[in-house]
Design a protein around this nucleic acid. Structure first.
Length: 363
DNA sequence: TCCTCTAACACTTTTGAATCGC
DNA sequence: AGCGATTCAAAAGTGTTAGAGG
């Protein structure tokens, strides 16, 4: 199968750099144990993802995407003011990506200002029709950013993509905040929460909780359709029989024994590092192979981690449940290493083309 | 009984249409 | 007429918490 022309040309572009703009805020939350509210109708993240890019080709077009990756194969519960493992993770919901609203745009556009993913929403509704990112409550995830050279979201050249993630962005998806420290931190930093800080303490005394009361507001859907280009990866057909074959092969290469090393644990060793991922190491329990995001061919050896330094989950938990596995991505190492890893993170077009790009964004 | 999820609440911020002035 | 600035109402978003449900 002939590679897309742009794929071949862009294979050697390995200079892309990505940084997390609000890293300090993320670290503040991360030090406590970040929690993200997920709701049936979708909830924005706070802190939200904001990144800066450099090293792109100024005139080449790129699509920037985000997806959410499970940190491990565990479900958690909040008990006695700390997180504990509560068993095996639920089967992964349909994998969705969020495309930055400016996509596609030329490299110079992406590099001139930071990119905000403020409007990305998280939901626990597996039947969601709005293309929001579907997560399981009480599971841990981290956002993963993809920089893909493409003229449009529908002509993506996966071969020229790079993937980034940040250890401090690991969070636990919850339907209600568990850790009061997180609540306090969010109220301090999130302007929308001011109403509760100043008047919330007495608000509940006035509330009428009758289910017969009319809805306070019209739904978002009634007003306008913010989200466009919204489809599940799950629904998309593979691009060719060859691609399907490659998909099967890719799935076989992943050992079911492999699970993720907590990104939290990784941070204990190199918390400041940006990195690209050897996606091949990752093993998600997706029910459909086509849902998986592209994997690269790079391999990074397991690196020991001081597990005792991990604040999460509770150390009271049965160690057989909290066993740490080889990392899903390379350890956060030096800048030179990162450069090298970026080179390796390029996969060939056939690796990527099996994953049609359908995402959602709020234009 | 415990745990998780949902929905209503009060308030602030954001958005976009309407209006005004140059 | 066209454009930019301003105003204002409605929508969107926030965390809290009682109650429902498993």
């Amino acid at each position: 199968m002939a590679l897309p022309r742009s794929a071949a040309l862009s294979y050697h572009q390995g200079r892309t750099r990505m940084s997390l703009d609000n890293a300090d805020l993320w670290k503040s939350f991360h030090s406590i144990g970040t929690e993200m509210i997920i709701t049936k109708h979708g909830r924005r993240m706070f802190p939200h993802c904001s990144i800066s890019l450099s090293g792109l080709q100024p005139l080449a077009k790129y699509v920037i995407l985000v997806d959410m990756v499970p940190v491990d194969g565990c479900k958690y519960k909040w008990k006695k003011e700390q997180w504990e493992v509560a068993g095996k993770a639920e089967p992964q919901p349909p994998c969705r990506t969020y495309t930055h609203p400016d996509s596609p745009a030329v490299g110079s556009h992406w590099m001139k200002q930071s990119l905000s993913f403020l409007k990305m929403k998280l939901t626990n509704n597996t039947l969601d029709q709005h293309g929001q990112i579907i997560l399981h409550s009480m599971h841990r995830y981290y956002p993963r950013f993809h920089v893909v050279q493409a003229d449009s979201p529908y002509t993506v050249c996966w071969g020229s993509s790079q993937t980034f993630s940040f250890p401090e962005t690991v969070f636990t998806a919850v339907t209600a905040y568990q850790n009061p420290k997180i609540t306090k931190l969010k109220i301090d930093h999130n302007p929308f929460a001011k109403g509760f800080r100043e008047g919330g303490t007495h608000s509940h005394s006035k509330r009428c909780r009758s289910s017969k009361s009319p809805p306070r507001k019209r739904s978002t859907e009634d007003r306008k359709n913010l989200c466009t280009s919204s489809l599940d990866l799950q629904r998309m057909p593979s691009t060719s029989p060859l691609v399907q074959a490659e998909t099967s092969q890719t799935s076989r290469q992943r050992s079911p024994k492999e699970t993720h090393l907590s990104a939290w644990a990784l941070e204990q060793h190199a918390p400041e590092r940006i990195h690209t991922e050897p996606l091949e190491l990752q093993e998600y329990d997706y029910s459909c192979e086509e849902q998986m995001v592209p994997a690269s061919i790079a391999y990074y050896p397991y690196r020991p981690v001081d597990y005792s330094a991990i604040p999460f989950p509770s150390r009271d938990v049965d160690q057989t449940q909290t066993r740490i596995h080889p990392p899903p991505h390379p350890p956060f190492t030096t800048e030179q290493d990162t450069q090298q890893q970026e080179q390796h993170s390029h996969s060939n077009a056939s690796d990527w083309s099996q994953y049609p790009l359908f995402s959602y964004s709020c234009w």
